[in-house]
Nucleic acid binder design. Structure first.
Length: 300
DNA sequence: CGTCCAGGTCTAC
DNA sequence: GGTAGACCTGGACGC
């Protein structure tokens, strides 16, 4: 049994289940959230060999238990997979600065117990593609599109449990698929050409999405600019992608968060400007504060 | 069966 | 820089 300490880089506590259930992508293949067992399964690529399926759940107090499904891996792949889980759970992030601000906010003081660690996909590419698949459609359509991509273009995991546990497709695999595949199998509609264009530009090296997460020197403004340059990515998608890469300054304003915020504040309608004003004092954490405000009831 | 719209974005003024 | 209209798809809804 492998374990990971549930402490952030600033020594702050980590609420594991809130992290596993921090946003909707926990339900998108190949990720699988078991709400009853309170475990999350992900598929991680390893340097050589087939991708591996990994399950994360509660361990001893203050620790997460990590189970690598299938045959026991050697020491190297095991360390690689543990690092992958740390990445997905964002354990290396430091949220203490955010907690210092939230502690004084009657609406967000509860977060300091360990909320706010947003799940991230193994690659920025995966979060970008999934986010494009959430735009202008019902969640059920997002699920269908992503499942088709994983099923048809993903790489099977060792000891995987069917095509939905395949590793998320690479940019190359998505770039090589035809327009008719996106139209007929993915049912992506007008998004098809966007998905192909993004995949090809990444596969050909014209766009480096992973740098957006790796390079912490880039200002949020520049990260946003690069994301908005991608076809199919507008203000909502950029904000959503930025949250998955630990850039919390932008608010995710969409047809789900707007009414949810209005309902929680018992208002009939709230302007975007008013919402932005409410969370302005959180500065670089404004988007995180907003997201936690509207998702508080997701757990407990 | 037609209309609306869902975790919006793009293009053309 | 700000704002209509079009846009794939497929459930939900009204008629």
């Amino acid at each position: 049994m492998l374990e990971l300490a549930l402490r952030g880089a600033g020594g702050e506590p980590v609420d594991l289940y809130r992290t596993l259930n921090s946003h909707g992508f926990a339900d998108l293949a190949p990720t699988y959230l078991d709400e009853a067992a309170r475990t999350l399964e992900v598929t991680l690529r390893v340097p050589r060999g087939k991708p591996r399926r990994v399950r994360v759940g509660a361990g001893r107090p203050g620790r997460a238990a990590v189970t690598i499904l299938g045959p026991a891996p050697g020491a190297n792949p095991r360390e690689h997979l543990l690092a992958g889980v740390r990445h997905v759970l964002r354990l290396d992030a430091d949220l203490s600065g955010f907690y210092a601000m939230a502690a004084d906010d009657p609406d967000l003081g509860w977060t300091t117990a360990g909320a706010g660690r947003m799940l991230q996909s193994p690659t920025v590419f995966e979060d970008v593609i999934k986010t494009i698949c959430t735009t202008n459609c019902a969640w059920s359509a997002t699920v269908r599109m992503v499942e088709a991509l994983v099923q048809h273009l993903g790489d099977a995991a060792a000891a995987g449990d069917g095509p939905l546990t395949n590793a998320f497709p690479t940019p190359a695999a998505m770039g090589e698929a035809s327009e008719s595949f996106y139209r007929e199998a993915v049912r992506a509609g007008y998004r098809g050409p966007y998905l192909i264009a993004v995949a090809r530009s990444v596969a050909e090296g014209q766009v480096d999405l992973e740098a957006l997460a790796r390079d912490r020197e880039l200002p949020d403004k520049e990260v946003e600019r690069r994301l908005l340059a991608l076809p199919g990515v507008g203000p909502y998608a950029a904000a959503h992608i930025m949250m998955t890469i630990g850039r919390y300054s932008r608010l995710i304003l969409d047809s789900w968060t707007r009414p949810k915020y209005a309902r929680l504040t018992a208002k009939k309608k709230v302007s975007d400007a008013a919402i932005v004003r409410r969370f302005r004092r959180y500065g670089p954490y404004a988007g995180l504060a907003f997201w936690l405000f509207v998702t508080r009831d997701w757990v407990d």
